[in-house]
Amino acid sequence: MPDKMHIKVTVNGQDEEFLAEPRELLIYALRERLNLTGPHVGCETSHCGACTVIVNGKSVKSCTMFVGQANGAEITTIEGLGSPDALHVLQETFREHHGLQCGFCTPGMITRAHKLLEENPNPTEEEVRFGMAGNLCRCTGYQNIVKSILAAAAQMNGAQEAAE
């Protein structure tokens, strides 16, 4: 059995250290070691996006990344996007526009949408659909997810303008 690796990561602003087998997937390290059960395992072949987190500023499917690859990285999960007292705009608009049903895809969906709005703060509907195409949902038919993201963009841009 190969030696365990000493892994150091920063997750949602917290420094974390642990020993892990190199083959451990990032999604399991987050879920089982750090108890961050927001990101989920859906397909395991990088098609569904339920495991989406942000690693060093990139949207990443954490079922297709070994924990060793993430060693030293800064990671953000759904748990790091908002807090019960200060929800992320997307967390509010997803609820407002019924952008979720069973909730299983939602953490990955919102985490990806967060990054999408950083890449493109003012997307068209088509750009949202293309930019969210790495995340599958079986419940909503996407229409309200798209609506939720466009609403979040509008709110964030409105807040930006108000601040300027």
Partner: peptide, 21 residues
């Protein structure tokens, strides 16, 4: 009515079978 479930789900605080430890 807005869904009461969503408050948990949008924050990654759902509790699915694989979350049980």
């Amino acid at each position: 009515r807005k869904r009461v479930e969503d408050v948990r789900f949008t924050q990654g605080k759902g509790n699915y079978v694989d979350d049980i430890k």
